[in-house]
Amino acid sequence: MTRRLSFPVMLASMLAPILAPVLALSPVSAVAQTALPPAPYADTQLEDPALEAKARDFMLTIRCVTCQSQSIADSNASMASDLRSEIRTRIKAGEEPEAIRRWLIERYGNWISYTPTADPVLWPLWAAPVVLLLVGGTLVGTRLKRRKRP
């Protein structure tokens, strides 16, 4: 278990410095989460570097269920380490990350995926960069043209 004084928490300590309740409630700071040692692949890499890289990249995009704002790759919560083990085991067995993502979304909803899914509710999010660039570009473009000497 790690001191969960991540950057967010540190900033919070400056900006919302009412930290005692935070650390008391924060799920990982509770000492005994489990009596068991970590699951086999929780903190052990896959032998094949390519598969490990695949698993690692995928785990960074999955949100830890018990710790609100961290990926399972950066969390010490026991559920996160069990899920890491599960994911490595499945990827070793040849499952594709996106299939695992679908399996997780079926259970936990879109919430669990840090990568926005193709759900229609998220379309505006992907449209945002294009729209902002177009609007901004148009504003700048017309003004520059007007500013050219006749």
Partner: peptide, 17 residues
């Protein structure tokens, strides 16, 4: 600070804060 305290080697997490 986050990088050395957190213990997972990350230095920016795009957290709301």
């Amino acid at each position: 600070w986050a990088y050395y305290e957190l213990g997972w080697g990350g230095w920016w997490f795009w957290d709301p804060v």
